[in-house]
Design a protein around this nucleic acid. Sequence first.
DNA 1: CACCCTTGCTTACGTCGTAAGCTTACACTG
DNA 2: CAGTGTAAGCTTACGACGTAAGCAAGGGTG
Lengths: 218, 218
Amino acid sequence: MPKSREPLSTRRVLQAALALADSGGTDSLSMRHLGRELGVEAMSLYRHVANKEAVLDGIVDLVVDEIDLPGDDSDWKAAMRRRGETAHRVLTRHPWAPALLMSRTNTGPAMLRYIDFTLGVLRGAGFSWRLADYAWNTMDSYVYGFTLRRLNFPIAAADYADTAAAYEYLLAGGRYPHMAELTRQVAEGHHPGDPDITFGLDLILDGLEHLRDREAAP
Amino acid sequence: MPKSREPLSTRRVLQAALALADSGGTDSLSMRHLGRELGVEAMSLYRHVANKEAVLDGIVDLVVDEIDLPGDDSDWKAAMRRRGETAHRVLTRHPWAPALLMSRTNTGPAMLRYIDFTLGVLRGAGFSWRLADYAWNTMDSYVYGFTLRRLNFPIAAADYADTAAAYEYLLAGGRYPHMAELTRQVAEGHHPGDPDITFGLDLILDGLEHLRDREAAP
DNA sequence: CACCCTTGCTTACGTCGTAAGCTTACACTG
DNA sequence: CAGTGTAAGCTTACGACGTAAGCAAGGGTG
C-alpha cells in the first residue's frame, strides 16, 4: 500500500467511487468507505464533491461515457442496434448503474453527447423531429428497462434450465398454469428461456423504419 | 386518553407502509416512521414482518395487485395494450414503485397472477411458448422502463414547452446541436415533446403480431 | 516576516436497520 | 381460583449512515 498520497481531486474521487460501486454495489458506496479507500477521512471528500448525490451523478456519467458511439455508419439501423447493444454491455459491466441511470435526472456531458449523437443518426436517416424524439425514447426505455430487469433476474443465463426447476414450488397447486407450463418448456429444452436484448431491439427498429416510411409518404 | 388500537397484523403494517411510501416516497419509509404512524415502536413491527426487505416486497406486490386484468377480450392486441396502459397508470399513481419493482426479484402472488394472465392471452392468440415469453418480457421491459424514465423526467408534461427553455443553457455553445434544435422545435410548438406510452406500445405489439404470423407460416 | 487560502481532520448530531432481552396481557389449564 | 404459557409490544443498544461546523497545518504570496 503506497502511503504517499497524491492530492485528491474531483476526478480521483469519482474514479474511486466508480471502482467501489463496481466491486460492491451501491450499498458499499458510502462517503466513509470511499474516504477509507482513498486514505482520507470522509469529510475531506466534501472539498471536491458537493455531496453524495453529486458522486452518484458523477459515476453515472462516467459509465455513460464508456458507451462507445458507433463511427460513421451509413446504415442507421445497424448504428442504432449497435448503440443499444453497447449500452447494454456497458451497463451490465456496472450492474449498479441502470437503477441510478433511470431514477435520477442525468444531464452530464457524456449523456448529452450520447443523446445528441442518436438524434443525429435518426435525423440523418430521414426521421422527423417528432419521430426521432419518440424513437430514441422508446429505444432507451426498452434498453434500460431490459437491462435492469435482466440484472435482477434471479436465474443466471447459463444455467437457466437447471435453476428454473428450483422455482417450481411457486407454481405448484395449479394457480399459475401458464407459468408452470412455460417453466416446463424451458426445463425440457424446448425453449432457451434466455431473453436476448436483440429480440426487442430489432423489433423496435423494424417498427420505427416502418413508421418513418409511412410518415414520408402519407 | 389511550387510543384503543386494534392489534397490528402483517396486512395492516403493509397497508400503512404503502400509504407512507405514497405520501413521501421511499425515503420516508423507515421502520421507525412506520411504527410511529401505527402508534407503535419500530421494533414491534418485526413481530409481523421479517425485515424491511419484506416490507418493500410486500408493498410492491400490493401495487401490482392494483393492476386490473382486462376481462375476456377476444382481441389479444387490445388486451395487451390495455394491460400496458393500466400498469403504467397504476405505477404512475405510486411513483416510488417502478424502481423497486425493477430492481428486486418479485415473486409475490399478484405478480405471478399478472404474468400468468399475460402468457394466457398470448398463447390464446397463437404465440409459441418461446415467442410468448419474449413478447411479455419485451413489453414489460418497455412499460416499466418508460414509466420509470418518465417519472424522473425533470419537466412535467403539462408545461413542457415552457420549462424546456429553462434547460437551454445546457445546450448553449453548440456542443449538442441536435438536442438544441429539438428543444427549439418543442419550444416553438412544432412537436409536442411529450412522449406517450402508447407510441412504443403499439410499435411493439404490431411487431409481435408480425413475428407471430411469420412464425406460423414459415 | 505576516498573511490567507487550500486541503484535510475532528467532533458532533440526528438518522437508519435490527439484535437481544424484557414486560405486559390474556387464554388456557388444573 | 392460582398457575402457566405465549404472543404482542417495549426498551436499550450497536454500528452504520450523510453531513454541518469548526479547526489545524502547510505553502504561496505580499
